[in-house]
């Protein structure tokens, strides 16, 4: 006679439960019988690098970081386009040259705009 096919799932669940629970129970038993827990201020501290933490963790960052990140990203992308442009510079047709100049002018215009808005001065806001 063949066993009920669901019996294997029940065995599997039993093993899956016993596998983590037995080590946890053994660790609990070990602590009770042999090793007394010794908590302390240093052991329970959240920060663990030997330096005492200063102030709170829930601080706000200035929103200006966002603008700097955006402006950095613009010139980061620009560098990626400029390198192949510089490599292929002598073999480029006039149209491609004008296209990359327009691209650069757009970026410079963006920088001038950010400058005019006062995004580059840190203390103004």
């Amino acid at each position: 006679m063949t066993p009920d096919p669901y019996i294997f799932i029940i065995i599997f669940i039993g093993v899956a439960l016993a596998f983590p629970l037995i080590p946890l129970a053994l660790a609990w038993l070990w602590r009770r019988v042999f090793q007394p827990p010794k908590p302390g201020a240093g052991k329970n501290a959240t920060y663990e690098c030997g330096v005492e933490s200063i102030g709170e963790a829930q601080i706000q960052f200035r929103s200006q970081y966002y603008l700097y990140a955006i402006i950095f990203l613009i010139f980061d992308v620009e560098a990626i386009f400029l390198v192949p442009f510089a490599v292929a510079f002598t073999g480029l047709p006039v149209g491609a040259f004008i296209a990359i100049l327009v691209f650069l002018l757009h970026l410079i215009e963006g920088l001038v705009w950010a400058w005019g808005k006062g995004c580059l001065s840190w203390a103004a806001h």
């Binding site: 302390g40 201020a41 240093g42 501290a45 690098c49 030997g50 330096v51 005492e52």
Partner: peptide, 8 residues
């Protein structure tokens, strides 16, 4: 810092 690391 060393004593604190040891404590942790």
């Amino acid at each position: 810092q060393i004593v604190r690391l040891y404590n942790q």
